[in-house]
Design a protein around this nucleic acid. Structure first.
Lengths: 342, 342
DNA sequence: TTGTAAGCGTTATCAA
DNA sequence: TTGATAACGCTTACAA
C-alpha cells in the first residue's frame, strides 16, 4: 500500500503531460535537455518509483529471473545463487527463488506458475525425482527462456552449465586407486539425475581402466533423510564386503559418511579413504581428517548462467539459447582423507 | 514471451464475456455452477494462467514477499528462508531474495527499489554496517509492512523475531565458567548489531555474576574477510593474556576459531573451551572436537515471520504489525568443546 | 446470471 | 519538443 507518487502526479506537479515525463525519465531523444533535468530532479525530490507492474504489463517483461532448485540448505546451491545474484543485481534484475524439496509435483506446480510471465527466464536444477520432463519441455517449446545447471535435462535443447562431472569423478576415483584402494564404494542420490549418471560413469570407467570390477553392493543410492542415509552407509561400512575407498557424488553424503564412520571403529584414511564432490571449502578443511574434495565452481556457474540470460534478455534480437552443454572444470584438492598410511 | 492464452481469448473460446470468466475462475457467487464448471475445465484445457502483473496492477498487491538479509552463505539465513518459504508457498506467495553483503548502501538501494510495490511486505535482517536507519524508517512510516528478524532495528515500531540472545549468551558464558574458564574471550561482528549488543550483554553479565572482570583485549570485533579473522583470532589465542574460554556470537567466527586453533598447538577443550551461536547442527557434531552450540531456532523464526505477514496481508482489516519483540528460545547443546578435562 | 465499461500506471502511436 | 489517446490483462461497479 501507499507507494509514493505516480507518473500522473509527478506530471501534474511539473505541469507537464505524463507522456512527456515518461519520455524524459527514459531519456528519450525527443525531449529537451532542460525538461529532462527538471523532470529528473523533481522525480528525485518526490522519490518517484515507477510501478513495476504497470511497466511489466505494458512491456511484457518483468526484469525478474526465477531460480528453481531442489534445496537451499546446501553450500553448492547457495553459492550458485550468490553468483547469479552478483550478475543480475548489476543489471537491475530481481531474483525469485523456489525450492522443490526434491519433489517433482512441487516442481511442476512451480514451473506452471512461472509460465505466466512472472519471470522473464528460469534457471533450473531439477529434482532427483524428475524423470517425466513434460512440464519443462512444454515451457521450452513455448519459447520461454530456460537454462539448466548442475542437474540438467539432456533432452531439452537449451544451454546447460555443468562441471566436468565425468572427468573429475574419473580422476577422483583414479586418485583413490593410486592411493591403494581396491574396493571403492560410490554414494549417490537418484540414478535419474544427470550428475549421478556422469559421475557414476566416471567412477566405473576409472575402475575399468585399473582392471577393477565394480561391486554392486558397494554402489549405494541414498535418500532424503539424513538419519536413514547415515544408517545405510554404516551398514555398508560394516558389511562383509566393506569398501576401502569411497566416492561421494554429493556433499551431503560425504557428511553422512563422516557421521556413519563416527559410529564405528573405522579409521579414515587408514581403513577407508574418502573423496567427495564438495562446495563448502571452509568446512572440508575442518573435518577430521580433512576431506579430499572435488570442488565445483559453484559461484562461477551461477555467474555464467546469469550472464547468458541477461544477454539473451537485454539484446533485442538475440538468437535462441543454443543447445549446448558448457562445462566449467572442478578442482580436486587432496587432503588427509585420502592420504596413504605410512 | 509467448505466455499462454489470456482471459479474453479464453472467454472467446467459451463464448462468454471476460468478466463472466473472471468471476467464474474466482469462484464468485454470482455465477452458476454449470458455467463455473465449463469455465474451469476449459481454463485447464488451455492451461490458462492469469497474468500476474495485470492482477497486481489492478489489485495493488503482488502476492510476493521480499527477504532482505546480509548474506546467503550461512546456515542460519538459509534455514530462515526455508521456514519462510514453507509458509508462503502454502499460501501461494512468491519470494524475492536480496543479499546486502553487509553493505548499507546496497541495503538502501534494495529497500528503495522495494518501495514501489514489487513486494507486499519485507522481512529483514540488517547489515552489520547499518546505523543510519532512515531508509527503513521511511518505509515503515509509509505504512509498508516491514518486520525484522535476528538483526533488528529497535527504533522502528514493528514486530521483530529474535531468539533469547541475552539469556542464552548468559547461560553459555556461565557454562564456560562452570567448566573452569576464567579468561573468556568474546568474538563478534559489528557492535552496531542488535544481536551483538544482546549477546555481549549476556556475556558481560555472566562474568559479573561470577565475580570475573572483563578484559578488553579478549573482546574481538571481527570483519568480513575470513582470512583476516582467522589471523586476528590466532593472535588473540597466542597473546600474552590468552583466553581459556571463548564465546563466539556467530557461526562463522566459531569456524574461524577452529581454523585458527589448527595453526597453533592449542588443544580444545584442554587449553581453550569454545561455545558458539551455531545453526548447522550436522556440522557441529563433525568438528573435532565436536562443538558446544547455542542453536538458534532458525527455521522456526522464518515460519513465524511468514505466518505473521500472511495474516496481515490476507485478512482484510488487519491492524498494524504490533511493535513487539518476540523471542523464540535457543537451545544449548553441550558437546566436547567445553567438556572438562580429566 | 451474464455483459459492458472503466480503470490500475505505464509506454507507444499519432497528432499538434 | 510536447500532448492526447490507446493499449497491456485483469477485476469490479453498474447495467441488463
Amino acid at each position: 500500500m501507499s507507494t509514493g507518487v505516480n507518473l500522473k502526479e509527478l506530471a501534474a506537479e511539473l505541469k507537464l503531460s505524463p507522456s512527456t515525463v515518461s519520455r524524459a525519465l527514459n531519456d528519450s531523444y525527443e525531449i529537451s535537455e532542460e525538461t529532462k533535468k527538471k523532470v529528473v530532479s523533481m522525480a528525485e525530490k518526490l522519490n518517484y518509483q515507477p510501478n513495476p507492474f504497470a511497466r511489466s504489463l505494458r512491456e511484457n517483461k518483468s526484469k525478474t529471473i526465477a531460480v528453481v532448485m531442489p534445496e537451499r540448505m546446501s553450500s553448492f546451491f547457495s553459492k550458485v545463487i550468490d553468483g547469479i545474484e552478483e550478475v543480475t543485481h548489476q543489471h537491475g534484475y530481481h531474483l525469485l527463488i523456489y525450492s522443490t524439496h526434491e519433489d517433482v509435483e512441487r516442481e511442476k506446480k512451480i514451473v506452471n506458475l512461472l509460465m505466466n510471465g512472472r519471470a522473464d527466464a528460469i534457471v533450473m536444477s531439477v529434482s532427483s525425482q524428475t524423470s517425466d520432463i513434460s512440464h519443462l519441455a512444454r515451457l521450452h517449446e513455448r519459447g520461454f527462456p530456460l537454462i539448466f545447471f548442475d542437474r540438467i535435462c539432456d533432452n531439452i535443447p537449451t544451454t546447460k552449465f555443468i562441471t566436468n562431472d565425468y572427468e573429475s569423478s574419473f580422476e577422483g576415483t583414479r586418485h583413490l586407486i593410486q592411493q591403494g584402494c581396491r574396493k571403492i564404494a560410490f554414494l549417490m542420490l537418484s540414478k535419474e539425475l544427470s550428475i549421478t549418471k556422469e559421475r557414476y560413469r566416471g567412477y566405473l570407467d576409472a575402475l575399468k581402466a585399473a582392471g577393477l570390477s565394480p561391486t554392486p553392493s558397494l554402489q549405494v543410492t541414498c535418500a532424503h533423510e539424513e538419519e536413514k542415509n547415515i544408517e545405510a552407509i554404516r551398514n555398508l561400512l560394516l558389511s562383509e564386503d566393506r569398501p576401502d575407498g569411497l566416492v561421494s557424488s554429493v556433499e551431503k553424503l560425504a557428511l553422512a559418511t563422516y557421521h556413519a564412520v563416527k559410529k564405528t571403529d573405522i579409521k579414515i584414511p587408514e581403513d577407508l579413504k574418502i573423496i567427495s564432490f564438495f562446495s563448502n571449502l571452509s568446512i572440508a578443511g575442518l573435518l577430521t581428517p580433512s576431506l579430499t574434495t572435488i570442488t565445483q565452481p559453484a559461484f562461477n556457474i551461477g555467474e555464467e548462467c546469469a550472464k547468458l540470460l541477461i544477454k539473451k534478455l537485454t539484446k533485442p534480437r538475440q538468437p535462441d539459447l543454443p543447445n549446448q552443454t558448457i562445462s566449467i572444470p572442478s578442482k580436486i584438492t587432496i587432503r588427509a582423507s585420502t592420504l596413504v598410511e605410512y
